[in-house]
Design a protein around this nucleic acid. Sequence first.
DNA 1: TAAGTGGGTGGAATCGATTCCAGAAAGGGG
DNA 2: CCCCTTTCTGGAATCGATTCCACCCACTTA
Lengths: 345, 345
Amino acid sequence: MGGIDSRKGARPIATISDVAKQAGVSRTTVSRYLNGHLEQSSDNAQKVAQAISALKYRPNLLARSLRSATTHSVAVIVPDLTNPFYPELLSAVETCLAQHGIQVFVGQSRNDPRREPDMLRDYFSRQVDGIIYVAAKSQPDPVLRQIAESIPVLILDEEIVGFEQETIRVDHELGLYQAAKYLLDLGHRQLIYLAGPSHLVTTQLRIQGLQTALNERGGQAAVEIVAGGYSMDAGRMWAEQFVLHPHHPTAVLCANDLVALGVHRAFSKRGIAIPKTVSLLGFDDIFVSAMVSPTLTTVRQPLHHMGRMIADRLLQAGQRRHVPASRMVVPPELIVRESTAPPPW
Amino acid sequence: MGGIDSRKGARPIATISDVAKQAGVSRTTVSRYLNGHLEQSSDNAQKVAQAISALKYRPNLLARSLRSATTHSVAVIVPDLTNPFYPELLSAVETCLAQHGIQVFVGQSRNDPRREPDMLRDYFSRQVDGIIYVAAKSQPDPVLRQIAESIPVLILDEEIVGFEQETIRVDHELGLYQAAKYLLDLGHRQLIYLAGPSHLVTTQLRIQGLQTALNERGGQAAVEIVAGGYSMDAGRMWAEQFVLHPHHPTAVLCANDLVALGVHRAFSKRGIAIPKTVSLLGFDDIFVSAMVSPTLTTVRQPLHHMGRMIADRLLQAGQRRHVPASRMVVPPELIVRESTAPPPW
DNA sequence: TAAGTGGGTGGAATCGATTCCAGAAAGGGG
DNA sequence: CCCCTTTCTGGAATCGATTCCACCCACTTA
């Protein structure tokens, strides 16, 4: 049953010409029907409607897009979908855009900045209406610059130096300021920050926030900064070292929740009590952070809010209304849970 | 300074005709150059190459696809990106496909089967080369059937009754059989299964596996089955009830890890000890499951393996070689962690 | 030298839609 | 009764690529 190949070519896909022929009108008329330029009740409209459902016709969006120069699609480039933060963001963005009939490409750079130019180019060649770009680097490349002259490119989360484009990100500086202030208020004097890659602007912003908080205490407290990565492994590896380390800080701040969870795990395994012996604080507030025990104190990025803003900006830009490039910096929120407490002494 | 609108239309995007004119050859020749049908060293090739880089030309993939009837894109439809299982799957699939120059649309049905026909249709209209479909229901709809006649549709994870299409899923029956057998071997006699929606084939398969394991014991053990959802809330709500429940089962099996985590949380909060008082077992093995404490015993779906298989099937189908529709059922793996132990008595 | 072969080239058709424009039909007013 | 306006319709151009086919040129071979 079903013959050898029930796939391609089995049922020829109807085109607008087929519909026109079947309905006994011109392609033009069919097109007008499709785009609502034809009186619904008219005689021709009836015939077209019938032909369409008889042939199960659906317009070829490729052809339509080619002509109309808009594809109703955008690309989202993220470093890595296995970091739960990005799917959560993606989910928010996709939900908003889907409501406006925009479909979403997703690509992972795998935290390798060298892949990014090619990815940007490929999506651009596909004529996407916009690109949402969570960059894995802070240097603008010529490809990015060129593309941004033709379609809106929203830089998310990261900041790209000297690149005057739409940017939406959380206030990293404020986030770490809040976190540090909170720990200092608890009485901690010896902090450590497991930072992200040092060449990133976000990393630098965060460190500034940290410093500001320290300066307010006028040198009573100190922080050690360790550059690293954004993975659980980064946290775990550092934690393994820490165990052997002579002078123990009393609180560990992490570049993101994944790093914090790496530390969390290693500490649990090694019997280092959180928060009794050492306090632990993350960044992002991915949903896992509320699941582990003790639950993780962290700095929340308002994901859904950001997702909606992103979608809105893109939609505005898509309508060709002039939207001046702006940088939107949204405030983070400190979520206090169980992994932080006053220092043991 | 960039002026009023540095967006659309600022820099006209070069087309193949522009390149042809600039190089002093015909469009045909440029096209041949692009597709490698032109001697690299030839005089014309040089001129074309120069024109391309001068104009920063990139072919319009829409136009190319329209002509060649292949878009090098596929769509992935998942119920919900906030369930970590799907991003993990998506990540594996995207990685494999990207290596072959195929780009990926992603869409969420939000667990609402009524959205699915529209989504399928939209992607089909975009002429995707294939659809990877994690269905939220087990009934085939006419739209799905029609689309599958033209392009490959891979049904993932779920089974659609009476629909003879490519299917790739884990052996649900075996998975629950293994899990139940393991618990029975530990000495449990009173089980409960927090199942997914009862109209899904997967749910029924799982229950069969469960029954098989029980039957092997010849009625010494019993299981209660509760139909529910796939969310943490579903688990949490059941757990709240459980606390008041008179006859306590000694082990709880869950439809997925998310449900198990909901139970996990509620139990922790209510002071019910896992696995001392009650054993807990999930399904999927999302990465969170290894993070909570106690860590969760679960049935692992071999995601990366499945991702690769999916991509492979799609690529084969894309080459129009005839690939007979097949159902691939991959074995799951029981991952024993800390949330299971012999019953307390 | 003429005929045959082969590779390189460009004109034109094509993919499936939208849209400009001109012509036909219908309706209204003088 | 005729003319002008308005509405409806379809032919043809267009979007940006690929590809068929005919042509030209140079080179080999009888």
